[in-house]
């Protein structure tokens, strides 16, 4: 079980302002309140909002109409420089924990569960990994967003190319999300993609991490199928790759 967060830990204690304020103004009321609660790391308020929504809809409805928009908005704010990585990570932890409570699920969702409440209705076999790098935070944030949105995802942790190719092949992964921080690791995705084309040609590779934000063409250079510049984008990318509407 994830450790509980202190309510109202004061990371964003003041009134909304600037781009944040504008973002909040344009959101519907429950999402607006959830966004504020998450940015302030107020777990209690976030939990109350989710429970209130749950009384009027299914868990999947709550995720789709409340959690997902808030997480996507936080990702968008970060991409535009209007919120910080620590807020994304800590708010993601809150969401993941609350969604687990909401769904009454065990911590480790596995492929055995697709179709159950909260799992994606057309669930692609997803996996996520860090390639040849020791910085795991980015992977964890994306994994948290996926789980908070009800997706089942295999977490391979840190892998080298050989290990990752083998995992993907064995598990029949359809969409592989690869997180990197350092440039050499980002460049190694080229080798990974070439190997996957040989043993698992249907696997789509989605990359993310700082090098891809600093060089907008890098994801094409390494042969990836898509790139995410923030964790919030991953849900749209998945919808696109699986042919669903966002």
């Amino acid at each position: 079980m994830l450790p509980r967060l202190m309510a109202g830990s004061g990371i964003w204690p003041g009134p909304a302002r600037g781009p944040l304020d504008e973002a909040i103004q344009t959101m519907s009321s429950p999402s607006e309140e959830l966004l504020q609660a998450l940015l302030a790391l107020n777990r209690v308020q976030a939990g109350e909002l989710l429970m209130a929504a749950r009384s009027q809809g299914s868990p999947l409805d709550v995720i789709e109409t409340l959690v997902r928009p808030a997480l996507e908005e936080i990702g968008r704010l970060w991409e535009e420089g209007d919120c910080a990585l620590s807020q994304i990570y800590m708010s993601g932890r809150i969401c993941e924990e609350l969604v687990e409570e909401l769904l009454g699920e065990a911590r480790d969702i596995d492929f055995a569960t697709p179709g159950e409440a909260g799992a994606a209705t057309r669930a692609p076999r997803l996996a996520i990994a860090v390639l040849e790098d020791y910085h795991l935070l980015g992977k964890q944030i994306v994994r948290t967003v996926l789980r908070a949105a009800g997706h089942a995802v295999k977490d391979y942790g840190r892998q080298d190319v050989d290990g990752l190719v083998e995992c993907v092949r064995e598990d029949g992964i359809e969409i592989l999300l690869v997180s990197t921080l350092m440039l050499p690791a980002a460049l190694r995705v080229r080798v990974l993609v070439d190997r996957l084309r040989e043993v698992s040609p249907h696997t789509r590779v989605v990359v993310g991490g700082a090098p891809y934000r600093f060089d907008e063409e890098l994801w094409r250079e390494v042969g990836a199928d898509a790139v995410g510049s923030s964790a919030g984008e991953v849900l749209d990318i998945l919808a696109r790759l699986t042919g669903e509407s966002a």
């Binding site: 004061g10 990371i11 964003w12 003041g14 420089g81 910080a84 990585l85 620590s86 807020q87």
Partner: peptide, 9 residues
Amino acid sequence: SSTIVPRER
């Protein structure tokens, strides 16, 4: 940096 933590923190 503001990439990692907000100004208040």
